[in-house]
Design a protein around this nucleic acid. Sequence first.
DNA 1: CCGTCGGTTGACAGCGCTGACATTTCTTCT
DNA 2: AGAAGAAATGTCAGCGCTGTCAACCGACGG
Lengths: 347, 347
Amino acid sequence: MSRETSARREPATIQMVADRAQVSPKTVSRVINNEPGVRGDTRARILDAIRQLEYQPNLNARGLAGARSFLIGLFYDKPGDYLNEFQTGAVQRCRESDLHLMVQPLDIASKEMARDVGTLVRQLRLEGAILLPPLSDHPIVRAALAEAGVPAVHIAPVREPVDSPSVDTDDRTAARHMTERLLEHGHRRIGFMLGPPGHRATEQRYLGFAHAMHARALSIDPELVQTGNFEFADGLECARRILGARSRPTAIFASNDDMAAAAACVARQVGIELPGELSIAGFDDAPVASMIWPQLATVHQPVREIARIAADLIIQHRPQRRGWPQPIPRPRLDLELVMRGSVGPAP
Amino acid sequence: MSRETSARREPATIQMVADRAQVSPKTVSRVINNEPGVRGDTRARILDAIRQLEYQPNLNARGLAGARSFLIGLFYDKPGDYLNEFQTGAVQRCRESDLHLMVQPLDIASKEMARDVGTLVRQLRLEGAILLPPLSDHPIVRAALAEAGVPAVHIAPVREPVDSPSVDTDDRTAARHMTERLLEHGHRRIGFMLGPPGHRATEQRYLGFAHAMHARALSIDPELVQTGNFEFADGLECARRILGARSRPTAIFASNDDMAAAAACVARQVGIELPGELSIAGFDDAPVASMIWPQLATVHQPVREIARIAADLIIQHRPQRRGWPQPIPRPRLDLELVMRGSVGPAP
DNA sequence: CCGTCGGTTGACAGCGCTGACATTTCTTCT
DNA sequence: AGAAGAAATGTCAGCGCTGTCAACCGACGG
């Protein structure tokens, strides 16, 4: 018959469903949107018709008529495992509520970012936005979202936004615990690899580290605290500085796994045995943590969980439409240590 | 005044732009859609008005009226670096053409997949879909897409779909070259780690390996060829089998980097020195390849490039709407070897 | 028996834009 | 200058759905 695949049918419309179920389109609409005030048998009849016709409401039409979009935006700076996990969790949660996730990388360096955000947000009429760090602290993004009236959820912001929810993890406590573990293993000279400023993660993790050290009245040698940018390549440099210090540490605590892996690399290069001569701890429990040998002791981040919660906040918020509930929700999750081979007794 | 952020303006409509530019909405529409037949000065006037009003066309309305959606779907099975890179490239290309990317994980095991795809595709009226392996060979997904009449681009399918384009890389040649390098280094007993069946990648990579071996009249010890599933954890098992063989190989060629990393891990565990006693080569040039020590020799995949091409195929296809051009495009990219420390002379 | 009321359902307009086609304006040629 | 044709612009309906509000239904009380 046709040159195209044969089974291709035109999609059903709400009118067709209405006809079949002997009701008005409006009533079908009520059923689709789970509105109350439809008698049980009517609903059943409509549901039947929907099933038979394999009807799928047209999102464009729904959005246009209802001034909605069924879209949530996920804004991120750099791709990576974190994004992957987050995205997975967020998509899952969205699907449960008939929403869709638009991913949008935003170049944090670009000056056009405000425009980008505005364009996206207004074209798509996003119903909400999730900001991954370090975007969660970016004033321009925040402003653009606020101006467009899009409710935003901030993930691990350094400064909690007064008027939007945020989702956090207790990195500080976890870092303290990890440091304590190192101390229990007899380590006293411990190096720390900082992430780039502007990330809550690096701040909190260092604070936890410092807290544990000070609690034991141990001093932190500034030479052993170096700043990286959470990336492996940079971590190499950073690790070389720490391991090249006048007095070498017996342990290094890196504020993420990529940098920890870099430290392990450098150690190998210069012939330091792991974990015999040097213990290394990371943070995040990224895939790489278990892909190197010895495997990295680290702190597990329940990223998917965080994502689900973030998406949930936006979804829950929607029905009200008029600002967030008071007080503004700020869930904070606890973290778990994952001890692995990279940490051993001090030499 | 208001309790919300003050600057919040209602978005402009095409009518407002039309009024301001003293033309009809239709002419504004023409400008927005880059249609010909608008005088230069008129166009300029309209562009001006658009700028002044910061007008952003409502995608829902555009889609509804024009039977479009401005959406391209990216379907994948498992998240990972490949997805990350791909997504990045695809989003970039989409933005250049005013399109948006919807990401959709699809559980390849689930029996509901067909329904999921159908729902998504029909609700969103996707303008095109990109299938990442191994989805690119999934008959149910292919069928669901075809039934909905959504043009699809298949990435590295095992069997090229007759009626849709595909984008490929010449994995076979690259694998042959890599194997030749190993041979040049004096390796004769070489192990190979296969990926899961259903991936073109694993097939082609093995073929290239076998080709190079046979060209030198070298036999392949079946005990040294083990099947993994492209994942690290599984690679550990796989590597143990290979390294536990009666006669140990002097090199291992893994069909992806995660498994190669696993091989490196196992080697370390059992005290085999790298690359002194064992050389390892991977494939993909994933981040982990440079995050372990010694760094992995591997084959670089231009994933973003592939993604851009895939998105481009869909975008280019759109204007015609009536099937793909003949012959159906099947770009195939060449791959480059990245030699790194994990490969050295045979002992 | 009628009025009233809560619960259901429907009529209708319109969301913001574009397709098809009509109309106007400018060129060009005789 | 006038006709014919091309180019530019406009008119109008309608995409598929939902908000608003009106209409309807049956049960109940007086």
